[in-house]
């Protein structure tokens, strides 16, 4: 459809403004991550949008090196929280995807599952805060408190609805002729699922896994309640970075925030095509 030049000008103006508002908070954190300690708290006329003397000191600092005499070295580095986030989000994704994919196939092909779809929608609806007390009690009974595998288990359950609904729409979309041909050839149902359906679904499986991984990686509240010291994740560690000894460690936190923000943004842009489907529980496809 042809549009008038005035409309085009308005469109670009509005979009550029929206992009600027979108980018300012992100760029401020990126800029802060590369600022030396002297520029962290600059105000008024001294406040600059870009670091005057860009440095990697903030990144060195959170990994245990204190190049400056101005701040106390950290007693715990960011390495283990990063590992904890990675391990718990990955295993959580594996749990959600394994249980979600097989249940989605069971429902899509055989109508199995009974109340499961409704139960999963309810699971998605409830604020996690409203079930955390019994979860904390169960987790300490099972010795899962403050472990990455304990976090992974609850992540797997919390993101199970997404994995299930996403995979169900993918299975519903998949043409059944190939499966039926294999059945006629004498393949068992189980073999068809393992040998034919799953390999064909490699791309959707990858997208769904990345989507679920982003959700797990983004958690703060659950880790805040279920980890205390040994296996805290990045956001929990980040919030604990300031103390009366060190004051607010702006640059160091920004550096860590950048490390936390990059993987989901990159993965999210990679799976753009499926974001709508994932977020709307498959009600909408792009």
């Amino acid at each position: 459809m042809r549009r008038s030049p005035a409309f085009e000008a308005f469109r670009y103006g509005a979009i550029l403004l929206a992009c600027a508002i979108t980018l300012v908070p992100i760029l401020w954190m990126v800029s802060m991550a590369f600022k030396p300690i002297a520029e962290w708290q600059a105000t008024g006329a001294d406040l600059t949008w870009f670091p005057k003397e860009p440095t990697l000191d903030n990144f060195r600092y959170i990994f245990g090196e204190s190049g400056s005499n101005l701040i106390v070295a950290l007693d715990r580095t960011a390495a283990k929280p990063i590992l904890s986030s990675l391990l718990s989000a990955s295993l959580g994704t594996l749990i959600a995807m394994a249980a979600g994919t097989s249940a989605a196939y069971g429902l899509s092909r055989f109508g199995a599952g009974g109340n499961l779809p409704l139960a999963l929608i309810q699971l998605r609806l409830f604020p996690p805060m409203a079930v955390m007390i019994p979860v904390m009690m169960m987790w300490s009974f099972l010795n899962l408190m403050d472990t990455w595998w304990g976090l992974a288990l609850i992540y797997g359950i919390v993101t199970l609805p997404f994995a299930f609904w996403l995979m169900k729409t993918f299975f519903d979309d998949m043409p059944r002729e190939i499966e039926e041909a294999a059945l006629v050839e004498g393949c068992s149902r189980g073999r068809v699922f393992w040998r034919i359906t799953l390999p064909m679904m490699r791309a959707p499986l990858a997208s769904a896994s990345l989507f679920v991984f982003i959700l797990n990686w983004s958690d703060y509240l659950i880790a805040l309640l279920l980890t205390t010291r040994e296996w805290v994740t990045i956001p929990v560690y980040m919030a604990s970075l300031s103390s009366s000894m060190t004051g607010q460690l702006y640059g160091a936190k920004a550096a860590l925030g950048l490390i936390a923000a990059v993987p989901p943004v990159v993965l999210g842009i990679m799976i753009q095509r499926h974001l709508v489907r994932g977020l709307t529980f498959g009600a909408l496809k792009q």
Binding site: I15, L23, P25, S218, Y220, I234, G268, I269, Q272
Partner: peptide, 26 residues
Amino acid sequence: ILIMPMMVVPAVAGYMFYMLFQSGGP
């Protein structure tokens, strides 16, 4: 660009805005 914010870890987004809204902030 426009869909980036929703993929930023919410806790990190919180920290971004914490910095932005400091009295001497941007």
